[in-house]
Design a protein around this nucleic acid. Structure first.
Lengths: 245, 245
DNA sequence: CCTATTTGTCTATTGTTCTATACAATTAGA
DNA sequence: TCTAATTGTATAGAACAATAGACAAATAGG
Protein backbone atom coordinates (compact mmCIF):
# COMPACT_ATOMS: atom_id res chain seq x y z
CA UNK A 1 0.00 0.00 0.00
CA UNK A 2 2.39 2.69 1.11
CA UNK A 3 5.01 0.57 -0.62
CA UNK A 4 3.24 0.38 -3.96
CA UNK A 5 1.99 3.97 -4.26
CA UNK A 6 4.39 5.59 -6.69
CA UNK A 7 5.96 8.92 -5.85
CA UNK A 8 5.05 11.66 -8.32
CA UNK A 9 8.02 13.09 -10.15
CA UNK A 10 8.37 16.61 -11.56
CA UNK A 11 5.20 17.63 -9.75
CA UNK A 12 6.80 20.75 -8.29
CA UNK A 13 7.30 19.01 -4.97
CA UNK A 14 10.73 17.53 -4.31
CA UNK A 15 10.77 13.77 -3.80
CA UNK A 16 12.29 14.09 -0.34
CA UNK A 17 9.45 16.37 0.71
CA UNK A 18 6.75 14.07 -0.66
CA UNK A 19 8.38 11.22 1.23
CA UNK A 20 8.68 13.31 4.38
CA UNK A 21 4.96 14.12 4.16
CA UNK A 22 4.03 10.48 3.77
CA UNK A 23 6.37 9.37 6.54
CA UNK A 24 4.88 11.96 8.90
CA UNK A 25 1.47 10.60 8.03
CA UNK A 26 2.57 6.98 8.45
CA UNK A 27 4.15 7.78 11.80
CA UNK A 28 0.98 9.51 12.99
CA UNK A 29 -1.20 6.53 12.07
CA UNK A 30 1.33 4.07 13.47
CA UNK A 31 1.79 2.10 10.25
CA UNK A 32 5.38 3.10 9.64
CA UNK A 33 7.02 2.59 13.02
CA UNK A 34 4.61 0.70 15.30
CA UNK A 35 7.36 0.10 17.85
CA UNK A 36 8.69 3.65 17.69
CA UNK A 37 11.68 2.62 15.64
CA UNK A 38 11.92 3.44 11.94
CA UNK A 39 12.98 0.71 9.48
CA UNK A 40 16.59 1.13 8.26
CA UNK A 41 17.25 3.76 5.61
CA UNK A 42 18.07 1.18 2.96
CA UNK A 43 14.79 -0.69 3.49
CA UNK A 44 12.79 2.55 3.42
CA UNK A 45 14.53 3.85 0.31
CA UNK A 46 13.63 0.64 -1.49
CA UNK A 47 10.06 0.80 -0.25
CA UNK A 48 9.62 4.33 -1.59
CA UNK A 49 11.60 3.56 -4.74
CA UNK A 50 14.21 6.30 -4.30
CA UNK A 51 17.90 6.59 -3.58
CA UNK A 52 19.04 6.31 0.00
CA UNK A 53 20.28 9.93 -0.04
CA UNK A 54 16.88 11.20 -1.11
CA UNK A 55 15.31 9.29 1.73
CA UNK A 56 17.92 10.71 4.10
CA UNK A 57 16.83 14.21 3.11
CA UNK A 58 13.28 13.34 4.09
CA UNK A 59 14.45 11.99 7.46
CA UNK A 60 16.64 15.06 7.98
CA UNK A 61 13.64 17.35 7.58
CA UNK A 62 11.56 15.29 10.02
CA UNK A 63 14.45 15.40 12.50
CA UNK A 64 14.49 19.16 12.03
CA UNK A 65 10.76 19.26 12.76
CA UNK A 66 11.29 17.22 15.91
CA UNK A 67 9.27 14.24 14.72
CA UNK A 68 12.27 11.89 14.48
CA UNK A 69 15.56 11.44 16.27
CA UNK A 70 18.46 9.69 14.46
CA UNK A 71 21.23 7.90 16.36
CA UNK A 72 24.29 6.74 14.50
CA UNK A 73 24.76 2.99 14.67
CA UNK A 74 21.45 2.44 16.48
CA UNK A 75 18.64 3.59 14.25
CA UNK A 76 16.07 6.35 13.84
CA UNK A 77 13.35 6.77 16.42
CA UNK A 78 10.01 8.48 16.72
CA UNK A 79 9.85 11.22 19.35
CA UNK A 80 6.37 10.68 20.69
CA UNK A 81 4.10 13.69 20.58
CA UNK A 82 0.37 13.24 20.39
CA UNK A 83 -1.91 15.66 18.61
CA UNK A 84 -3.90 17.96 20.86
CA UNK A 85 -7.66 17.87 20.55
CA UNK A 86 -9.16 21.35 20.52
CA UNK A 87 -12.87 21.33 21.36
CA UNK A 88 -15.18 23.64 19.44
CA UNK A 89 -18.60 24.22 20.93
CA UNK A 90 -20.80 27.10 21.95
CA UNK A 91 -18.48 27.47 24.93
CA UNK A 92 -15.10 27.34 23.22
CA UNK A 93 -12.27 28.53 25.48
CA UNK A 94 -8.58 28.12 24.72
CA UNK A 95 -7.12 27.28 28.10
CA UNK A 96 -10.04 25.29 29.47
CA UNK A 97 -10.31 23.31 26.24
CA UNK A 98 -6.80 21.98 26.46
CA UNK A 99 -6.94 21.28 30.17
CA UNK A 100 -5.59 17.83 30.88
CA UNK A 101 -3.83 17.65 27.54
CA UNK A 102 -1.00 20.05 28.28
CA UNK A 103 0.49 21.12 31.57
CA UNK A 104 1.03 24.69 30.54
CA UNK A 105 -1.24 26.73 28.28
CA UNK A 106 -0.74 30.38 27.51
CA UNK A 107 -1.42 33.05 24.94
CA UNK A 108 0.88 35.86 23.92
CA UNK A 109 -0.11 39.24 22.51
CA UNK A 110 2.19 39.94 19.55
CA UNK A 111 0.75 43.29 18.55
CA UNK A 112 -2.41 45.35 18.52
CA UNK A 113 -3.77 48.30 16.58
CA UNK A 114 -6.93 50.31 16.10
CA UNK A 115 -8.08 50.50 12.50
CA UNK A 116 -11.24 51.06 10.46
CA UNK A 117 -13.33 47.90 10.12
CA UNK A 118 -13.11 46.04 6.82
CA UNK A 119 -16.52 45.09 5.39
CA UNK A 120 -16.26 41.42 6.42
CA UNK A 121 -15.24 42.33 9.97
CA UNK A 122 -17.92 44.99 10.26
CA UNK A 123 -20.66 42.67 9.10
CA UNK A 124 -19.69 39.97 11.58
CA UNK A 125 -19.56 42.46 14.45
CA UNK A 126 -22.82 44.07 13.39
CA UNK A 127 -21.31 47.54 12.99
CA UNK A 128 -20.85 49.92 10.07
CA UNK A 129 -17.84 49.41 7.81
CA UNK A 130 -15.10 51.84 8.78
CA UNK A 131 -16.03 51.95 12.46
CA UNK A 132 -12.81 51.83 14.51
CA UNK A 133 -11.99 48.29 15.64
CA UNK A 134 -9.21 46.91 17.78
CA UNK A 135 -7.15 44.23 16.08
CA UNK A 136 -5.20 41.77 18.26
CA UNK A 137 -2.50 39.46 16.94
CA UNK A 138 -1.83 36.55 19.28
CA UNK A 139 -0.02 33.23 19.53
CA UNK A 140 -1.18 30.42 21.80
CA UNK A 141 1.14 27.76 23.15
CA UNK A 142 0.78 24.48 24.99
CA UNK A 143 3.81 23.21 26.88
CA UNK A 144 5.96 25.71 25.04
CA UNK A 145 4.91 24.61 21.57
CA UNK A 146 3.05 27.10 19.41
CA UNK A 147 -0.43 25.75 18.72
CA UNK A 148 -2.30 28.53 17.03
CA UNK A 149 -1.95 32.03 15.68
CA UNK A 150 -5.01 34.24 15.88
CA UNK A 151 -6.17 37.62 14.64
CA UNK A 152 -9.12 39.00 16.60
CA UNK A 153 -11.21 42.11 16.10
CA UNK A 154 -13.29 43.92 18.74
CA UNK A 155 -15.23 47.16 18.56
CA UNK A 156 -12.73 49.79 19.71
CA UNK A 157 -15.26 52.06 21.43
CA UNK A 158 -16.69 49.33 23.63
CA UNK A 159 -13.36 47.73 24.50
CA UNK A 160 -10.99 50.67 24.94
CA UNK A 161 -7.81 49.47 26.65
CA UNK A 162 -8.63 45.81 26.05
CA UNK A 163 -5.16 45.08 24.66
CA UNK A 164 -3.42 46.08 27.89
CA UNK A 165 -5.76 44.02 30.03
CA UNK A 166 -5.30 41.07 27.72
CA UNK A 167 -1.52 41.38 27.61
CA UNK A 168 -1.46 41.34 31.39
CA UNK A 169 -3.97 38.54 32.02
CA UNK A 170 -3.01 36.53 28.92
CA UNK A 171 -6.57 35.33 28.61
CA UNK A 172 -9.42 36.54 26.43
CA UNK A 173 -11.94 35.21 28.93
CA UNK A 174 -10.34 37.10 31.81
CA UNK A 175 -10.06 40.29 29.76
CA UNK A 176 -13.73 40.12 28.80
CA UNK A 177 -14.64 39.68 32.46
CA UNK A 178 -12.94 43.00 33.24
CA UNK A 179 -15.22 44.62 30.70
CA UNK A 180 -18.32 43.30 32.40
CA UNK A 181 -18.75 40.26 30.19
CA UNK A 182 -18.96 37.38 32.61
CA UNK A 183 -19.96 34.90 29.95
CA UNK A 184 -19.88 34.69 26.18
CA UNK A 185 -20.87 32.15 23.54
CA UNK A 186 -19.55 31.09 20.18
CA UNK A 187 -22.16 31.84 17.55
CA UNK A 188 -20.54 30.29 14.49
CA UNK A 189 -17.33 28.68 13.31
CA UNK A 190 -16.11 28.24 9.76
CA UNK A 191 -13.30 25.76 9.13
CA UNK A 192 -10.96 25.75 6.16
CA UNK A 193 -7.44 24.47 5.52
CA UNK A 194 -4.58 25.87 3.48
CA UNK A 195 -0.84 25.97 3.25
CA UNK A 196 0.74 28.10 5.95
CA UNK A 197 1.84 31.48 4.65
CA UNK A 198 5.33 32.79 5.49
CA UNK A 199 4.06 34.75 8.50
CA UNK A 200 2.33 31.74 10.08
CA UNK A 201 5.34 29.61 9.23
CA UNK A 202 7.53 31.88 11.31
CA UNK A 203 5.12 32.49 14.20
CA UNK A 204 4.19 28.82 14.59
CA UNK A 205 7.67 27.45 13.92
CA UNK A 206 6.54 25.34 10.98
CA UNK A 207 8.46 24.15 7.95
CA UNK A 208 7.48 25.24 4.43
CA UNK A 209 4.54 23.36 2.96
CA UNK A 210 2.97 22.85 6.37
CA UNK A 211 -0.81 22.98 6.65
CA UNK A 212 -2.89 25.22 8.87
CA UNK A 213 -6.48 24.67 9.91
CA UNK A 214 -8.23 28.03 9.79
CA UNK A 215 -11.27 28.80 11.91
CA UNK A 216 -13.25 31.99 11.43
CA UNK A 217 -15.53 32.55 14.40
CA UNK A 218 -17.89 35.04 15.97
CA UNK A 219 -18.37 35.26 19.73
CA UNK A 220 -21.48 36.87 21.20
CA UNK A 221 -22.39 38.04 24.70
CA UNK A 222 -25.31 36.53 26.63
CA UNK A 223 -27.68 38.92 24.91
CA UNK A 224 -26.52 37.64 21.53
CA UNK A 225 -24.63 40.78 20.52
CA UNK A 226 -21.37 40.08 18.63
CA UNK A 227 -18.35 41.06 20.72
CA UNK A 228 -15.47 39.40 18.91
CA UNK A 229 -14.63 38.28 15.39
CA UNK A 230 -11.55 36.13 14.95
CA UNK A 231 -9.50 34.13 12.47
CA UNK A 232 -7.34 31.44 14.04
CA UNK A 233 -4.68 29.39 12.26
CA UNK A 234 -3.91 26.05 13.95
CA UNK A 235 -0.83 23.98 13.06
CA UNK A 236 -2.59 21.03 11.47
CA UNK A 237 0.00 18.47 12.55
CA UNK A 238 -0.28 19.49 16.20
CA UNK A 239 -4.01 19.97 16.62
CA UNK A 240 -7.28 18.38 15.66
CA UNK A 241 -10.61 20.15 16.08
CA UNK A 242 -13.22 18.30 18.05
CA UNK A 243 -16.74 19.45 17.31
CA UNK A 244 -19.30 18.97 20.05
CA UNK A 245 -22.88 18.52 19.00
CA UNK B 1 2.42 42.44 2.31
CA UNK B 2 2.10 39.73 -0.26
CA UNK B 3 4.69 41.76 -2.16
CA UNK B 4 7.26 41.77 0.61
CA UNK B 5 6.93 38.17 1.80
CA UNK B 6 9.92 36.40 0.34
CA UNK B 7 9.47 33.03 -1.35
CA UNK B 8 11.34 30.24 0.42
CA UNK B 9 14.04 28.69 -1.70
CA UNK B 10 15.38 25.14 -1.49
CA UNK B 11 12.43 24.20 0.70
CA UNK B 12 11.60 21.13 -1.36
CA UNK B 13 8.68 22.89 -2.97
CA UNK B 14 9.27 24.35 -6.42
CA UNK B 15 8.98 28.12 -6.59
CA UNK B 16 6.24 27.96 -9.20
CA UNK B 17 4.18 25.75 -6.91
CA UNK B 18 4.62 28.02 -3.90
CA UNK B 19 3.57 30.95 -6.03
CA UNK B 20 0.59 29.04 -7.43
CA UNK B 21 -0.51 28.25 -3.86
CA UNK B 22 -0.26 31.89 -2.83
CA UNK B 23 -1.98 33.12 -5.95
CA UNK B 24 -4.85 30.68 -5.41
CA UNK B 25 -5.13 32.01 -1.88
CA UNK B 26 -4.94 35.63 -3.03
CA UNK B 27 -7.58 35.00 -5.67
CA UNK B 28 -9.88 33.36 -3.14
CA UNK B 29 -9.62 36.30 -0.73
CA UNK B 30 -9.93 38.82 -3.55
CA UNK B 31 -6.65 40.62 -2.81
CA UNK B 32 -4.88 39.56 -6.00
CA UNK B 33 -7.45 40.27 -8.68
CA UNK B 34 -10.31 42.29 -7.19
CA UNK B 35 -11.71 43.04 -10.65
CA UNK B 36 -11.27 39.48 -11.91
CA UNK B 37 -8.25 40.37 -13.98
CA UNK B 38 -4.77 39.33 -12.92
CA UNK B 39 -1.95 41.92 -12.99
CA UNK B 40 0.45 41.43 -15.93
CA UNK B 41 3.01 38.63 -15.70
CA UNK B 42 5.92 41.06 -15.47
CA UNK B 43 4.39 42.94 -12.56
CA UNK B 44 3.57 39.71 -10.73
CA UNK B 45 7.01 38.22 -11.31
CA UNK B 46 8.56 41.33 -9.77
CA UNK B 47 6.14 41.25 -6.87
CA UNK B 48 7.04 37.65 -6.06
CA UNK B 49 10.71 38.20 -6.81
CA UNK B 50 11.08 35.51 -9.46
CA UNK B 51 11.65 35.27 -13.18
CA UNK B 52 8.73 35.76 -15.49
CA UNK B 53 8.96 32.14 -16.67
CA UNK B 54 8.72 30.83 -13.15
CA UNK B 55 5.62 32.90 -12.62
CA UNK B 56 4.23 31.61 -15.92
CA UNK B 57 4.60 28.05 -14.64
CA UNK B 58 2.49 28.99 -11.64
CA UNK B 59 -0.16 30.52 -13.89
CA UNK B 60 -0.08 27.47 -16.17
CA UNK B 61 -0.86 25.16 -13.26
CA UNK B 62 -3.75 27.38 -12.13
CA UNK B 63 -5.07 27.40 -15.70
CA UNK B 64 -4.83 23.61 -15.63
CA UNK B 65 -6.81 23.59 -12.37
CA UNK B 66 -9.45 25.79 -13.95
CA UNK B 67 -8.86 28.73 -11.60
CA UNK B 68 -7.48 31.04 -14.29
CA UNK B 69 -7.95 31.60 -18.01
CA UNK B 70 -5.15 33.26 -20.04
CA UNK B 71 -5.83 35.15 -23.27
CA UNK B 72 -2.94 36.21 -25.44
CA UNK B 73 -2.77 39.94 -25.91
CA UNK B 74 -5.56 40.62 -23.42
CA UNK B 75 -4.54 39.33 -20.04
CA UNK B 76 -5.23 36.56 -17.54
CA UNK B 77 -8.62 36.29 -15.90
CA UNK B 78 -10.16 34.58 -12.89
CA UNK B 79 -12.82 31.97 -13.66
CA UNK B 80 -15.20 32.50 -10.79
CA UNK B 81 -15.88 29.48 -8.64
CA UNK B 82 -16.87 30.01 -5.05
CA UNK B 83 -16.05 27.59 -2.29
CA UNK B 84 -18.96 25.46 -1.12
CA UNK B 85 -19.94 25.72 2.53
CA UNK B 86 -20.63 22.32 4.05
CA UNK B 87 -22.69 22.62 7.26
CA UNK B 88 -21.82 20.36 10.17
CA UNK B 89 -24.41 20.03 12.88
CA UNK B 90 -26.32 17.34 14.69
CA UNK B 91 -28.36 16.98 11.50
CA UNK B 92 -25.57 16.82 8.92
CA UNK B 93 -26.80 15.61 5.51
CA UNK B 94 -24.79 15.77 2.30
CA UNK B 95 -27.38 16.69 -0.27
CA UNK B 96 -29.57 18.89 1.92
CA UNK B 97 -26.51 20.73 3.23
CA UNK B 98 -25.44 21.88 -0.21
CA UNK B 99 -28.92 22.77 -1.38
CA UNK B 100 -28.92 26.16 -3.02
CA UNK B 101 -25.15 26.08 -3.50
CA UNK B 102 -25.04 23.57 -6.33
CA UNK B 103 -27.67 22.58 -8.83
CA UNK B 104 -26.72 18.95 -8.86
CA UNK B 105 -25.51 16.92 -5.88
CA UNK B 106 -24.86 13.22 -5.94
CA UNK B 107 -22.86 10.48 -4.31
CA UNK B 108 -21.28 7.49 -6.01
CA UNK B 109 -20.50 4.13 -4.46
CA UNK B 110 -17.00 3.17 -5.58
CA UNK B 111 -16.76 -0.15 -3.77
CA UNK B 112 -17.97 -2.03 -0.72
CA UNK B 113 -16.82 -4.99 1.32
CA UNK B 114 -17.60 -6.83 4.53
CA UNK B 115 -14.62 -7.16 6.86
CA UNK B 116 -13.82 -7.62 10.55
CA UNK B 117 -14.02 -4.36 12.49
CA UNK B 118 -10.73 -2.69 13.37
CA UNK B 119 -10.50 -1.61 17.02
CA UNK B 120 -11.14 2.09 16.30
CA UNK B 121 -14.17 1.29 14.16
CA UNK B 122 -15.52 -1.21 16.66
CA UNK B 123 -15.22 1.22 19.54
CA UNK B 124 -17.05 3.97 17.69
CA UNK B 125 -19.86 1.63 16.67
CA UNK B 126 -20.09 0.14 20.14
CA UNK B 127 -19.43 -3.42 18.98
CA UNK B 128 -16.68 -5.97 19.66
CA UNK B 129 -13.50 -5.74 17.60
CA UNK B 130 -13.62 -8.29 14.79
CA UNK B 131 -17.41 -8.14 14.38
CA UNK B 132 -18.22 -8.09 10.64
CA UNK B 133 -18.75 -4.56 9.35
CA UNK B 134 -19.72 -3.23 5.96
CA UNK B 135 -17.22 -0.76 4.52
CA UNK B 136 -18.45 1.69 1.86
CA UNK B 137 -16.13 3.77 -0.31
CA UNK B 138 -17.90 6.76 -1.84
CA UNK B 139 -17.30 9.97 -3.75
CA UNK B 140 -19.66 12.94 -3.56
CA UNK B 141 -19.95 15.52 -6.29
CA UNK B 142 -21.60 18.90 -6.72
CA UNK B 143 -22.25 20.10 -10.25
CA UNK B 144 -19.93 17.42 -11.55
CA UNK B 145 -16.97 18.42 -9.38
CA UNK B 146 -15.75 15.90 -6.81
CA UNK B 147 -16.23 17.41 -3.38
CA UNK B 148 -15.46 14.66 -0.93
CA UNK B 149 -14.28 11.09 -0.66
CA UNK B 150 -15.66 9.06 2.23
CA UNK B 151 -15.11 5.71 3.87
CA UNK B 152 -18.05 4.59 6.00
CA UNK B 153 -18.51 1.57 8.26
CA UNK B 154 -21.83 0.01 9.35
CA UNK B 155 -22.52 -3.11 11.36
CA UNK B 156 -22.94 -5.82 8.70
CA UNK B 157 -25.56 -7.86 10.55
CA UNK B 158 -27.93 -4.94 11.05
CA UNK B 159 -27.49 -3.49 7.56
CA UNK B 160 -27.29 -6.53 5.28
CA UNK B 161 -27.72 -5.44 1.67
CA UNK B 162 -27.20 -1.77 2.52
CA UNK B 163 -24.66 -1.31 -0.27
CA UNK B 164 -27.15 -2.24 -2.99
CA UNK B 165 -29.82 0.04 -1.60
CA UNK B 166 -27.30 2.87 -1.34
CA UNK B 167 -25.93 2.30 -4.84
CA UNK B 168 -29.45 2.53 -6.19
CA UNK B 169 -30.74 5.49 -4.16
CA UNK B 170 -27.37 7.29 -4.08
CA UNK B 171 -28.21 8.69 -0.66
CA UNK B 172 -27.23 7.54 2.80
CA UNK B 173 -30.34 9.11 4.26
CA UNK B 174 -32.62 7.29 1.83
CA UNK B 175 -30.81 4.00 2.40
CA UNK B 176 -31.16 4.31 6.16
CA UNK B 177 -34.87 4.99 5.73
CA UNK B 178 -35.25 1.62 3.98
CA UNK B 179 -33.75 0.00 7.07
CA UNK B 180 -36.32 1.59 9.32
CA UNK B 181 -34.18 4.51 10.38
CA UNK B 182 -36.33 7.52 9.66
CA UNK B 183 -34.02 9.91 11.42
CA UNK B 184 -30.45 9.94 12.65
CA UNK B 185 -28.16 12.40 14.39
CA UNK B 186 -24.48 13.21 14.27
CA UNK B 187 -22.95 12.50 17.64
CA UNK B 188 -19.42 13.82 17.14
CA UNK B 189 -17.10 15.18 14.48
CA UNK B 190 -13.33 15.38 14.55
CA UNK B 191 -11.62 17.66 12.04
CA UNK B 192 -8.03 17.41 10.85
CA UNK B 193 -6.15 18.46 7.73
CA UNK B 194 -3.34 16.82 5.80
CA UNK B 195 -1.86 16.50 2.36
CA UNK B 196 -3.96 14.40 0.03
CA UNK B 197 -2.56 10.92 -0.44
CA UNK B 198 -2.24 9.45 -3.96
CA UNK B 199 -5.62 7.71 -3.74
CA UNK B 200 -7.51 10.88 -2.75
CA UNK B 201 -5.55 12.80 -5.38
CA UNK B 202 -6.91 10.50 -8.06
CA UNK B 203 -10.48 10.17 -6.76
CA UNK B 204 -10.94 13.89 -6.16
CA UNK B 205 -9.05 15.03 -9.25
CA UNK B 206 -6.56 17.09 -7.26
CA UNK B 207 -3.01 18.09 -8.08
CA UNK B 208 -0.10 16.89 -5.92
CA UNK B 209 0.40 18.84 -2.71
CA UNK B 210 -3.31 19.55 -2.41
CA UNK B 211 -4.86 19.64 1.04
CA UNK B 212 -7.78 17.60 2.32
CA UNK B 213 -9.96 18.41 5.31
CA UNK B 214 -10.64 15.14 7.13
CA UNK B 215 -13.71 14.65 9.29
CA UNK B 216 -14.16 11.57 11.42
CA UNK B 217 -17.76 11.28 12.54
CA UNK B 218 -20.20 9.01 14.33
CA UNK B 219 -23.92 8.99 13.47
CA UNK B 220 -26.46 7.62 15.93
CA UNK B 221 -30.14 6.68 15.62
CA UNK B 222 -32.84 8.44 17.63
CA UNK B 223 -32.20 6.10 20.54
CA UNK B 224 -28.56 7.14 20.56
CA UNK B 225 -27.15 3.87 19.26
CA UNK B 226 -24.23 4.29 16.83
CA UNK B 227 -25.22 3.23 13.31
CA UNK B 228 -22.42 4.65 11.18
CA UNK B 229 -18.76 5.55 11.55
CA UNK B 230 -17.14 7.51 8.75
CA UNK B 231 -13.99 9.26 7.60
CA UNK B 232 -14.55 11.90 4.94
CA UNK B 233 -11.84 13.71 2.98
CA UNK B 234 -12.95 17.08 1.57
CA UNK B 235 -10.95 18.93 -1.12
CA UNK B 236 -9.88 21.91 0.99
CA UNK B 237 -9.86 24.35 -1.90
CA UNK B 238 -13.44 23.51 -2.85
CA UNK B 239 -15.15 23.25 0.51
CA UNK B 240 -15.28 24.97 3.86
CA UNK B 241 -16.90 23.41 6.90
CA UNK B 242 -19.52 25.50 8.59
CA UNK B 243 -20.12 24.53 12.20
CA UNK B 244 -23.53 25.29 13.62
CA UNK B 245 -23.77 25.87 17.33
C1' DC C 1 37.29 -8.38 20.44
C1' DC C 2 35.35 -9.12 16.21
C1' DT C 3 31.41 -8.77 13.06
C1' DA C 4 27.11 -7.23 11.21
C1' DT C 5 24.06 -3.49 11.19
C1' DT C 6 23.11 1.08 11.02
C1' DT C 7 23.69 6.18 10.42
C1' DG C 8 27.04 9.84 8.67
C1' DT C 9 30.13 11.93 5.06
C1' DC C 10 32.30 12.51 0.57
C1' DT C 11 32.68 12.88 -4.56
C1' DA C 12 30.92 12.57 -9.13
C1' DT C 13 27.23 12.44 -12.60
C1' DT C 14 22.71 13.20 -14.45
C1' DG C 15 18.25 15.39 -14.76
C1' DT C 16 15.06 19.13 -13.42
C1' DT C 17 14.03 23.83 -12.10
C1' DC C 18 15.01 28.67 -12.38
C1' DT C 19 17.08 32.58 -14.62
C1' DA C 20 18.26 35.58 -18.55
C1' DT C 21 17.55 37.36 -22.99
C1' DA C 22 15.32 37.74 -27.23
C1' DC C 23 11.58 37.79 -30.20
C1' DA C 24 6.77 36.30 -32.06
C1' DA C 25 1.61 36.69 -31.83
C1' DT C 26 -2.54 38.80 -30.30
C1' DT C 27 -5.31 42.52 -28.62
C1' DA C 28 -6.89 47.28 -27.56
C1' DG C 29 -6.73 51.95 -28.28
C1' DA C 30 -4.95 56.28 -30.18
C1' DT D 1 -2.75 51.81 -39.31
C1' DC D 2 0.54 52.24 -35.94
C1' DT D 3 1.94 51.64 -31.17
C1' DA D 4 1.93 49.94 -26.55
C1' DA D 5 0.75 46.29 -23.65
C1' DT D 6 0.22 41.69 -23.02
C1' DT D 7 0.70 36.56 -23.49
C1' DG D 8 3.33 32.77 -26.04
C1' DT D 9 7.70 30.45 -27.60
C1' DA D 10 12.68 29.40 -27.97
C1' DT D 11 17.40 28.76 -26.39
C1' DA D 12 21.26 28.61 -23.25
C1' DG D 13 23.42 28.73 -18.79
C1' DA D 14 23.22 28.52 -13.55
C1' DA D 15 21.32 26.54 -9.43
C1' DC D 16 19.29 22.72 -7.28
C1' DA D 17 17.57 17.82 -6.74
C1' DA D 18 18.30 12.99 -7.34
C1' DT D 19 21.21 9.00 -8.28
C1' DA D 20 25.34 6.13 -7.65
C1' DG D 21 29.14 4.12 -5.31
C1' DA D 22 32.49 4.00 -1.63
C1' DC D 23 33.87 4.32 2.91
C1' DA D 24 33.89 6.24 7.92
C1' DA D 25 31.85 6.09 12.65
C1' DA D 26 28.98 4.35 16.14
C1' DT D 27 26.34 0.60 18.21
C1' DA D 28 24.73 -4.03 19.59
C1' DG D 29 25.47 -8.80 20.07
C1' DG D 30 27.92 -13.04 19.87
Amino acid sequence: MMATDPIERRSGIALWRQIADRMRQGIATGTLAPDGRLPPELALSERFGVNRHTLRSAIASLVQEGVLRAEQGRGTFVTERRRLSYPISSRTRFSAGLEGQARERRSLLLSHAVEPAEPAVAESLGIAAGTPVLRLETVSEADGRPISRATAWLEAARFAGFADVYAESRSITAAFARFGIADYLRKSTLVTARHADPVDLADLGLSPGAIVLVTVAVNVDIEGRPIQFSETRFAADRVELSIQN
